[in-house]
């Protein structure tokens, strides 16, 4: 008799558990999205001068408000939009890599995906004296080429092993960073400042024109990435298990890499390699979310939140206006220590 009474209760446990997890997933995502919207809105209103919500709405609707039209319409709005999208793209790409490579340290900025963009941007700014738009285009192309090279170099019969991909990425990044410092060493002092700011990652001088490619990339690629999440979740269990579950592993991996790298590349081109956003967002989102599904979307939302908050802080809280990357870098360093210790001790993934 006992078995008969226990059997339904097990099902009940499973269903209630499932419902609870679904609710939690939903709550976390909605909560993060609301937080992003709130910070976005506040960053339009607050600053050196305060504009009430009515002015901001008027400007967004195309109205002409004294002062606010310029400050909000030309300065704050493009900046906030760029920050939002850059953070979102970094967060998505970071968590995708971390999940796919099953290692929270293997975010695209650590394993060298953005180093190609950095080298290209520095060459574009200092050697070729290109315009910001051209620098962005060159950085995008270079990030894609670098990622492709890393992938090819880690390909051996039997496919791409995650460990090999990570290590080769690190090697390439070390080489490219010496190229960066070589180009920097020959630069004039003023150009050097510009290049350093670019390398740190900043949202100064964000315009719609520079952000447009990123907008298109996010609109096109984010849905693809979210559509791939199901297969990515299966790949978390290991390549063989995923293959047994019917996931075309190598094809999914290539697709994921292409999409994540493209997001990374366009975001880096728009604002520079803002330190640690891609690295931090995934693990933090996974922490907030708990074990209730893929942290990738939550990571994107958290990335957006992080960039918006850090940029606001960098602009107004410290006397001098720092690039946003300084703040995320300083925040990231201690968290990195924690993450290194924790992940190596447990040997775990996200």
């Amino acid at each position: 008799m006992t078995t008969l009474t226990e059997a339904p209760s097990t099902i009940e446990v499973v269903t209630t558990g499932r419902a609870r997890r679904a609710r939690r997933r939903w709550l976390v995502h909605v909560g993060l999205a609301l937080a992003v919207l709130a910070v976005f809105w506040l960053s339009l209103m607050l600053g050196r001068t305060y504009y009430p919500a009515s002015d901001v709405i008027a400007v967004i609707l195309g109205g002409d408000v004294d002062g606010a039209s310029f400050t909000v319409g030309t300065l704050r709005l493009p900046r906030a939009v760029t920050g939002l999208l850059v953070g979102f793209a970094f967060g998505l790409a970071g968590a995708t890599f971390q999940t796919m490579l099953r290692n929270p340290l293997a975010s695209p900025d650590v394993i060298g995906i953005s180093s190609g963009a950095s080298a290209a941007a520095v060459i574009g700014i200092l050697v070729l004296n290109l315009s910001p738009t051209a620098v962005s285009a060159m950085a995008t192309a270079a990030a894609l080429v670098t990622a492709f090279a890393i992938y090819l170099l880690s390909y051996k019969q039997g496919g791409v092993a995650n460990t090999r991909l990570i290590l080769i990425g690190i090697g390439i990044a070390a080489m490219l960073s010496s190229v960066v410092s070589y180009v920097l060493s020959g630069a004039a002092a003023w150009d050097m400042q510009v290049a350093m700011r670019w390398l740190t990652g900043n949202l100064n001088g964000a315009t719609y024109e520079r952000t447009l490619p990123l907008v298109i990339a996010v609109v096109l690629l984010a849905p693809v990435l979210l559509w791939l999440l199901r297969d990515l979740e299966a790949m978390r269990l290991g390549d063989q298990t995923a293959a047994a579950l019917g996931v075309p592993v190598e094809r999914t991996r290539v697709l994921l890499i292409v999409v994540a790298v493209a997001l990374m590349a366009f975001a880096t081109a728009a604002a520079g390699p803002i330190a640690f956003v891609a690295f931090l967002s995934g693990p933090i989102a996974a922490r907030i979310l708990g074990p209730v599904g893929s942290p990738v979307l939550a990571s994107g939302l958290f990335g957006a939140l992080l960039v918006l908050v850090a940029d606001f802080f960098a602009q107004y809280a410290l006397g001098t206006r720092f690039p946003v990357g300084v703040i995320t870098g300083a925040l990231g360093a201690p968290f990195l220590v924690y993450l290194l210790v924790r992940s190596n001790r447990s040997g775990g993934s996200l």
Partner: peptide
């Protein structure tokens, strides 16, 4: 793998600190 990742991540972090210190000081 672990050593290289720890090294690379540490490099990124320390590099960020270096630029945070240097940026306002031409």
């Amino acid at each position: 793998l672990k050593l290289a990742l720890a090294g690379a991540a540490t490099s990124v972090a320390l590099g960020a600190l270096v630029s945070a210190i240097l940026l306002p000081r031409a």
